[in-house]
């Protein structure tokens, strides 16, 4: 029997149902796992996404026609049953379950297994074939747990504020930024200063009932050196001198899973790095693969070679799932 989902020039495709998942070219029907730019690309005629993520998707793709599906609600497309299940990556991020002729495939999209106050936890969906992401697919990527990392973040912010400096947390604008704001809310009294790119997304999260720390736009503060003793949130691309000069003694920390390694921390030449990720670590990937019960695993999104070989050696049918997305690496996206 032909594979239910195959890799094509436009991305992952279901021939039986004639729809794509996270296509990187315009297609008639795009089932979209989440609103990060390497998954949600403009130009398709119809987007099908988790109801919880529709407003984010519409913000990212203005004017797009988006249909929302409730969690677990089944939509039949040309006889193929499609449903969406939380992936725990960011708000509204979904795994796509595809069933046809008794065969079940799940495309994970991006996922994590850790608790995140801004979104639903990952749901294990049993399947025959599991398409897993592989962003952090080496055993050295092992997260310390969000509570431990956040304790470090909070104490660093407090120490920096106490010395009158600005603690600048550099992070992805969608997802990680709101996760940080939600985690910081109980610990901070003064508002967090945010870059203009972050605030509209905060508003969407708040509108959905997620509690975030209060925020204020950096651009509403005095131009030069005026901001003291504050926590600041911005995308990495914003960390340019012209923007930073508003801040008194800015200390920079990059919040990303890549900060797990000393070498990456040093290459980024940040004052600090915090390994808080919206992707699964190595134990998370293995646990998830095991729990799906899948006999066949296809890995994509990242350097999947080690994971594929490791799974193959444990007796699973494993392979890398072709093509790399063109221009996929957007520093401010992807929630790594």
């Amino acid at each position: 029997m032909a594979d239910l989902l195959t890799m094509t020039d436009a991305g992952l495709y279901c021939e039986a149902g004639d729809f794509h998942i996270d296509p990187w070219r315009p297609v008639p029907r795009a089932v979209t796992t989440h609103a990060h730019s390497d998954h949600a690309r403009a130009g398709s005629e119809l987007y099908i996404a988790a109801a919880e993520g529709v407003s984010l998707l519409q913000h990212r793709l203005p004017g797009a026609r988006v249909e929302g599906l409730e969690w677990g609600e089944t939509r039949t497309i040309h006889g193929v049953r499609v449903s969406l299940h939380p992936s725990g990556h960011i708000r509204g991020a979904a795994q796509v379950r595809v069933e046809h002729g008794g065969e079940v495939w799940v495309a994970s999209g991006d996922y994590k297994r850790e608790a995140d106050p801004t979104c639903r936890p990952f749901e294990v969906v049993r399947c025959h074939t599991f398409i897993t992401e592989a962003t952090f697919a080496l055993p050295v990527y092992r997260w310390a747990g969000p509570d431990a990392v956040m304790a470090d973040v909070v104490s660093w912010c407090q120490a920096t504020m106490a010395s009158d400096g600005c603690a600048v947390l550099l992070t992805y604008t969608l997802g990680k930024a709101q996760r940080l704001l939600a985690e910081l809310a109980p610990h901070l009294e003064a508002p967090v200063l945010v870059h203009g790119a972050v605030e509209p997304l905060n508003a969407l999260y708040r509108a959905a009932g997620v509690t975030l720390a209060s925020t204020q736009l950096v651009r509403d503060t005095p131009v030069r050196g005026g901001v003291r003793g504050a926590v600041v949130l911005a995308p990495p691309s914003a960390a340019v001198p012209a923007w930073l000069r508003r801040l008194h003694e800015p200390q920079m920390a990059f919040v990303s899973g890549w900060m797990r390694l000393r070498g990456t921390r040093r290459r980024r030449s940040m004052d600090r790095g915090f390994a808080l990720s919206d992707h699964a670590d190595w134990p998370g990937l293995l646990q998830t693969i095991r729990e799906t019960g899948a006999q066949r695993v296809l890995a994509t999104h990242g350097d999947s070679a080690a994971l594929v070989r490791f799974l193959a050696e444990t007796g699973l049918e494993a392979a890398a799932l072709g093509a790399v997305m063109p221009g996929a690496s957007d520093a401010d996206e992807d929630g790594a």
């Binding site: 080496l138 055993p139 050295v140 092992r142 797990r260 390694l261 000393r262 070498g263 080690a306 070989r309 490791f310 050696e313």
Partner: peptide
């Protein structure tokens, strides 16, 4: 000690670039 195959330790070492750090994490 970890049950990880030697090639995977090697691949990790390549990603990390420092043996002390690689083995400490693993």
């Amino acid at each position: 000690h970890t049950g990880l195959p030697a090639w995977l330790i090697e691949a990790s070492y390549h990603a990390v670039g420092d043996l002390s750090e690689t083995l400490a994490i693993l």
